[in-house]
């Protein structure tokens, strides 16, 4: 019986670790995207990656760690609020930028790779 509970706690730890590592991976990928992409509207998409999947996965991981407690309920509530407010905030920023006349870049964006640029010169 004791062995079973130890095994269960290890499984829960691994599950939580998996969720949180995946979540933090999405957060970092979104952050890199925000730095790399060329204009405001495209950066917005990268920021959305963080806001949706990254945040929810980290919160699920924390809920598994917290177990069946009040803290877990609060974390779920936090995830629910983020799920509702983040698209609204993104839409508000995008709509404000669009109404203010910030023109979206609509051409194909493909910067020359440093490797290709070197080749062209050589």
């Amino acid at each position: 019986m004791d062995l079973l509970s130890i095994a269960l706690s290890i499984i829960l730890d691994l599950l939580s670790a998996g969720f949180m590592l995946a979540g933090v991976g999405f957060v970092l990928a979104g952050t890199i995207g925000v730095m790399r992409l060329p204009d405001f509207y495209t950066r917005m998409h990268a920021a959305g990656v963080t806001d949706t999947l990254g945040a929810e996965l980290i919160i699920i991981g924390l809920v598994i760690q917290a177990g069946f407690t009040l803290v877990a309920a609060k974390l779920l509530l936090l995830g629910f609020f983020l799920f509702l407010t983040s698209p609204t905030a993104t839409h508000a920023v995008a709509n404000a930028a669009y109404k203010a006349g910030l023109a979206p870049m609509l051409s194909r964006f493909k910067p020359p790779h440093p490797r290709d640029a070197g080749k062209g010169e050589g």
Partner: peptide, 8 residues
Amino acid sequence: LAVNSFGT
């Protein structure tokens, strides 16, 4: 956008 993302 950066401030909002920072807040998240």
